[in-house]
Nucleic acid binder design. Structure first.
Lengths: 223, 223
DNA sequence: TCTCATATTTTGACTAATCAAACAAACCTA
DNA sequence: TAGGTTTGTTTGATTAGTCAAAATATGAGA
């Protein structure tokens, strides 16, 4: 059984790897993501390499093996099902469930997870729009077009909102920037470092986001 | 924050102390209950004494302080609410929830716990009939008359069934020996080391339990 | 009250995960 | 390509929790 620390490293590595699939993740990046000093990551990664979960290339970086990826998907499935459960069944706010799920994902058995999955009707995505991996390790491809890279004048549907910052999620919710919402990009000006969007079916006028914020919202083109 | 190991020691100590309130629990007993060697308990208890959770009398035993008891009740509240939740909301069998709750009780936040409490309608007892401590630390007194100490010919209501052995719980359920059931003791013979009970409103004839099993069922007299 | 069995404590060692700080390699850049 | 910066690795320590086995205290019986 993988310890919850191991699960966290593997999950984080999966996450970092998503940005550039197949590439080696540098140790420093993983250290920052995990909130530990680089030396700790070196030690840990060598142990994970010994147990076959990662490929480690000294001084270059690290990458999940197939087995490591399966573990990551398993953890992610737990995390995302728990998040949805907390919103759907217990009525928590989507901005707070990420933190809660960080703990619960390590404590939940497969049996309980299956019950939750059934109770929720075998959902495909968590409250932030991220796909929930199936028990067999399949995952739907997730939307990867960031709002910060969108075209002015075009219309999109929000697919996914990065889930780790509670403040940002509250802001997004207040402005109707939630998965499923249809928006039109009014401007996306690199020099102003900002994006303006109009949210369909909403009374308030357009809202503006800095590009750092816009980079946390992922969309799919409509039509 | 108490680690989950600390929470386990405190919870176990509370449990051992229930048998004889106020008495010192010998180290050996706690070691056996925790499944560790005695030396480990000595070390751990000294640390718990330093943090004010227990009173430790070397070579005599250990006892919870008021603060330790509050922590125990808090852990127990989580444990029992989780058990009931698993039965009521997720449909698990009462024989399997104890194990599941052992893990979950350490991972659940107060916020989630409150939601569960509300969802279940602020229940007073877990699926095995043990009282659920209130958030403020109050607990109802639990039934302490063991079926093994019952009087032949008398009628009782089952209040509580010890929850740790899944096999026994399955047996109890099959025979209608669940909290709330009304039973009449037909015989309780010390020399035969067995108790025979008739379960009201049940077609099968009386069922028989060894006194070790009967000691795990707690009853309250009717009339 | 002496002795022995039993319970408890101590000591030394181990694992997992971490940090601080010294060290080494890689990589720019002039 | 020589130097300096950045990035990564090593080393030595630390904390929590544990075990094995040696040492010690307690209490009960003779």
């Amino acid at each position: 059984m993988a310890s919850s620390t191991v699960e966290d490293y593997i999950k984080r590595l999966y996450h970092e790897q998503q940005r550039e699939p197949g590439a080696l993740v540098p140790m420093g990046r993983l250290a920052e993501a995990m909130g530990v000093v680089p030396g700790t990551v070196t030690t840990m990664i060598k142990a994970l390499a010994d147990s076959g979960l990662v490929d480690y290339e000294p001084r270059a970086g690290v990458r999940l093996t197939r087995g490591g990826e399966q573990l990551a998907l398993h953890v992610l499935r737990r995390h995302r099902l728990v998040e949805l459960f907390l919103v759907q069944t217990l009525g928590l706010d989507w901005s707070e469930v990420h933190q809660e799920a960080e703990e619960l994902e390590h404590a939940i058995s497969d049996k309980v997870l299956d019950r939750i999955d059934a109770l929720l009707g075998h959902p495909a995505a968590d409250p932030h729009g991220s796909p929930i991996p199936r028990a067999n390790g399949e995952v739907a491809q997730q939307a990867n077009l960031a709002l910060s890279a969108s075209e002015p004048g075009h219309t999109y549907q929000i697919a996914r909102v990065a889930d780790s910052d509670a403040r940002f999620l509250q802001f997004a919710e207040r402005n109707g920037l939630v998965p499923g919402a249809t928006i039109t990009v009014e401007s996306n000006d690199a020099s102003a470092d900002a994006v303006t969007v109009r949210c369909h079916g909403r009374s308030p006028a357009a809202c503006m986001l800095g590009s750092a914020a816009a980079a946390r919202i992922f969309v799919t083109p409509v039509n």
